[in-house]
């Protein structure tokens, strides 16, 4: 029983509101808002309202992963972790060059992301739960990522973290020739 899934992302997309009135004098109750036969008033809030009075919750729950599927997911994760750990020995196997190091780092981050998504998606049931949970968690993760990346870059972490230190020579000044008359 799918509810009218009018998704209004409750974190900011405020375009479609129930009593969005154009003309100055149009009164409050806009024609849009009628109560659908299914008993649940057609709501345009964060789409999270489908559970409202829908009888028992999350119809999707019956067919959560079976134990067998969890085992396969576990083996995949184990395999990925072994692969990750192996990158420690790559410099010995493929030569200790920068290229190997960059490839190893990108592989590591990729595997990390995959494991992250797998555990969150399957073990933590994010794939099967209502979308609002997914939105809350992903919002938190991306939020943390964005803020700390900005903070690190403004602490010139990426350029060279060789911060001009006590007895380092001070960085040379970008000297542009100021025209004599200036």
């Amino acid at each position: 029983m799918s509810s009218t899934d009018t998704q209004t992302d409750d974190s900011g997309h405020f375009g479609q509101s129930v009593d969005d009135t154009g003309g100055a004098l149009q009164d409050a109750v806009s024609p849009v808002d009628e109560t659908t036969a299914a008993g649940a008033p057609k709501t345009s809030d964060g789409g999270a309202d489908d559970g409202r009075g829908m009888g028992h919750l999350d119809p999707a729950h019956e067919h959560g992963p079976t134990d067998g599927q969890y085992f396969t997911v576990f083996w995949i994760l184990l395999g990925l972790t072994v692969l990750e750990v192996s990158t420690y020995w790559w410099p010995d196997w493929f030569g200790d060059t920068d290229a190997v190091r960059y490839v190893a780092t990108t592989v590591l981050f990729a595997l990390m992301f995959i494991k992250f998504v797998m555990i969150a998606g399957i073990f933590m049931h994010l794939k099967f739960d209502p979308k609002i949970l997914r939105r809350v968690f992903i919002f938190g993760v991306l939020f943390a990522l964005a803020i700390y990346l900005i903070a690190l870059s403004s602490m010139n972490f990426w350029t060279d973290s060789g911060i001009p230190w006590f007895n380092d020579p001070p960085p040379e000044i970008v000297t542009t020739t100021v025209p004599e008359g200036g």
């Binding site: 964060g46 999270a48 309202d49 489908d50 559970g51 409202r52 009075g53 829908m54 009888g55 028992h56 919750l57 999350d58 739960d129 209502p130 609002i132 949970l133 809350v136 968690f137 919002f139 938190g140 993760v141 939020f143």
Partner: peptide
């Protein structure tokens, strides 16, 4: 849960909000 507006039980939603923080 069927008493909540989002259809998710309170403790579960609370845990997810805590995990996000």
């Amino acid at each position: 849960p069927h008493a909540t507006a989002t259809g998710i039980s309170n403790p579960k939603l609370a845990m997810w909000v805590y995990l996000a923080s």
